[in-house]
Each structure stands twice: as C-alpha cells, then as structure tokens.
Simulated scan of single mutants.
Amino acid sequence: MKAEIAVLDIQGIYRIYTELHRAKTPAGTILLINGSLSTLASFAQTVRYLQPHFNIVLFDLPYAGHSRRYNTHHRLLSRDDEADIIIELIEHFKTDCLLSFSWGGIASLKALARHPRHVRKAAINSFSPLINGAMLDYLQRGSQVLGACDRDGIGELVNSTIGTHLPSLYKRYNHRHISSLEIYEYAQMKFHVDTVLHHEGRSCVSHADVIEIPLLFINGEWDEYTTAQDARQFARHARHCEFHSVARAGHFIDIEHRQANLDTRNALLDFLFAPAIPHRQAMAV
C-alpha cells in the first residue's frame, strides 16, 4: 500500500512533508521522529516491522529531506520550535504513540512534557540525559567540521563514531547522504550541537519529571555515546519508564544487524501492546 503524502501548513510558518503508511487493521498510529542529519528515509526498517500493527506517520523537518523545497531557510529552528511542530503533527494525525531516535529525543521529550492529549506511550531510542566523555568529544569535533562545512569530514566523523557498528553498505550510504547536504542544514546542526555544548536544550530530566505516560528507552549495548547505563538516569525522574538494552548493537540499533533488528522490534511491540500501568516506575532488562 502506497503512503499517503501531504504537505501540511504548521502555524502559518512551516510547510512539513508527511507520509502516512496505513496498516490494514491498525492498533493505533505512531509518529516517528528522526535524529540529526537524517530524513524520514532512515526509518525504512522501522516501518517494515511496525506497519503490520500500526499506522505510521513520517515527516521531515523544514530544513531537511522532502520538506526543504517548501520552506525558506532564513532562521534556525530551536528544539522548542521542533516540539511545536511535533505537537501539531500529533494533533493532526491523532497519533497515540511516539517513537524518536537519537537527537530527536530532545524535541520529543519537550513535546511530551506539554501533555499532548492523544499520546498514550512513547519510545525513545539511542538517547540519554548525560553527555559523557565520548559524546563530548563527538560534539566538539562535530562543531568544528560543521562550522567549516567540511562535507567529507562530517561524513567520516559520523561513520567513525556513532556509526562505527554500521554495516559497510550503510556507512557508504551514510557518507554519501551526509556529505551532500545543503549549507543551511550544516548550520542548523551546528546550532543544535553548540546549544548542547553550552549546557542548554539537553536538560531533559526536567521534561521527564512532568511526563505522565509510560516511556521506553532502548539503547545499544555497544553504544558508547548514549549508553544504556546513562539512559537509566531517567528512572529517577520519569513516573513510569522501562529500559531495554539491545545486545551487540551500537547507536543505530535496528539497522546494524538482523538480530538487533528483531530484538528492537520485539522490545518495542511488547511495550506498545502491554496494558499501561500509570504512575509507577519499572526497571526492565
């Protein structure tokens, strides 16, 4: 079944390209939120294992992917701007679940802290509330190559750090994609990176404190940048959270190898189909 494509007007400011992938008998509708330098195409594997069960909504932010042609690029978006867009999409599609990847977790948590009325559960993949040594080094180097618009340097940095466990084919695709972006996309990413380096925008625990719906945090066992151990810091703040570590997987968990894909899928579906247990915290292996 082909995706239903729409370009939505958001607050009279942004034009957002969206795709709705319908399931035959959906158990709900999930909004997928990708990470930095990514487009909705990065969720191809995720759509394959979710669409038999759920309607899937994909979108590109104004500066990325299919949305680029519909927007001017005279101002940089903050994470609050991105959260505004997420809220509008939740309302438009009446999505009752949310799944984010990597840096998409910041805007997702900001949006969830506003208590969107339709969302009942959310999964946050490859994300943690801490900037450890590996992440700090990655961000500092990232700021330099992004500022210099060093296209090959940006691609090489991603593949040699958070992408180190990707199969070689994905690394080639990753480098080709990242090294061919527009200058304003690099500027946008540098803005986000520098915001985090200045200790702004990533104080995610304050948002988790007020989120009332169940959250699932999925991290790769081999991910040195957003570690499973660091993600568990959310247990001190979120009212109901669960954690799952994917064995022998790095940052790009479900596309690194088949078993990691199956493990991620099973953890996510178990969480989404389980009855919600309000106002408690849970620790899962």
Rank of each mutant, 00 (worst) to 15 (best):
L8H: 09
I10A: 07
G12K: 02
I13N: 06
E19Q: 06
T25D: 12
T29V: 05
I30H: 01
L50G: 06
F54W: 12
I56H: 02
L58C: 01
L58V: 08
F59S: 02
P62S: 04
P62N: 00
Y63M: 13
N71E: 03
T72W: 11
H73V: 05
R79N: 14
D81N: 12
D81W: 10
E82F: 04
A83F: 04
I86L: 10
I90N: 06
E91A: 15
E91H: 12
H92D: 01
K94L: 05
T95H: 07
L99S: 07
L99N: 04
F101L: 08
F101Q: 07
F101A: 06
F101M: 06
S102C: 10
W103N: 12
S108C: 04
L112I: 03
A113H: 04
H115Y: 07
H115E: 13
R120L: 07
A122H: 04
I124N: 02
P129I: 00
I131F: 03
I131V: 10
N132T: 08
G133P: 00
M135H: 10
D137R: 15
D137L: 12
Y138H: 13
R141Q: 10
S143F: 07
V145Y: 05
G147K: 11
C149R: 14
V158R: 00
I162W: 01
I162V: 15
I162K: 02
G163V: 07
G163Q: 01
G163P: 10
H165L: 10
P167K: 06
S168E: 15
L169W: 08
H175E: 05
L181K: 11
Y184N: 03
M189H: 10
K190W: 08
K190N: 06
H192D: 15
T195Q: 12
V196D: 02
L197M: 11
H198M: 08
E200I: 06
G201R: 05
S203C: 09
V205R: 05
I211Y: 10
E212R: 11
P214V: 05
L215Y: 04
L215R: 04
F217C: 01
D223A: 09
A228F: 15
Q229M: 14
R232E: 10
A235K: 06
H244P: 00
V246W: 02
G250E: 09
F252G: 13
E256Q: 07
H257F: 00
R258Y: 13
Q259Y: 14
Q259I: 10
L262D: 09
L262A: 13
N266Y: 07
N266A: 10
D270C: 06
L272R: 05
F273V: 09
A274Q: 14
A276F: 12
H279W: 05
R280P: 05
Q281Y: 07
Q281V: 13
A282H: 12
A284D: 08
V285W: 12
